[in-house]
Write a protein that binds this DNA or RNA. Sequence first.
DNA 1: TCGCCGATTAAA
DNA 2: TTAATCGGCGAA
Length: 199
Amino acid sequence: MQTARLTRDFFDRDTVVVARDLLGRILVRRFPDGTVARLRIVETEAYTPDGDTANHASRGPTPRTAPMFGPPGHAYVYMIYGKYHCFNIVTEGVGQGAAVLIRAAEPLEGVEILERHRPVRRRYDLTNGPGKLCIALNIDRSFTGHDCITSRHLWFEEGAPIPDDHVARTPRIGIDYAAEHDRLALKRMFIKSNPWVSK
DNA sequence: TCGCCGATTAAA
DNA sequence: TTAATCGGCGAA
C-alpha cells in the first residue's frame, strides 16, 4: 500500500530521533525494468555528528564520506569488506556529517523481485542485514549522493510509526574499533520480536 | 606508493 | 571462529 513520501524535513533532525522514527516507515525501490518493491524498515543505527568515533565522518570529510556532509535525505553508500554495500540516509544539516544506517527491512510488496537479485533458502535471510538488504535492492556505490527525496528509483514513504513499547535499543554492531563511550551508546534500534531483524 | 583494516556474511 | 576481498585512508 502506498503512503505519502517522506520529505527532506523528516531527515533534517537529530540523527537518533530520525533512526527511531524510521522504524515502521517504508523503503521503496523502483528497478530499471519498472518493477517496484516496498519494505518496512525494522532495524536502524544512528551515526551521530557529536564526536562519535564509530562514525565514518568523525575525522572530517573525505572523498568517500562527502555525501554525509551534504544535504539531508541523500544516500551515503559505501563498500564494506570488499564484498558488500551498506545503505545510509544522510541526516541533520549540511556540514554535520551524520547518517542513519538501514540495517534490516521486511518485504511487503515485490518479494519475488528482491529474490531475483538474491536467491535465498530461508525467507528471513533476504533482507535481515545491511549487506543483504543492498544485494536484494541492487544498491551499490553508484547510489552514493543520490537524492532520495526527489528520486524515482529509491525513496521513503510514511508507512506507520511504531509505538515506544515496541522499540528496543542496543549498542551498534561491528564497531569494536570505536571508543568505549561510543561502543556502549544505545544507537541501534529495532522493532521488538520482528523476525526480519538481523541475527 | 605501501600497508592496514573494516557500520558483513556464510561457512566450518 | 574464521576467511573472503578490495577500496579508503593515513603514513611515508
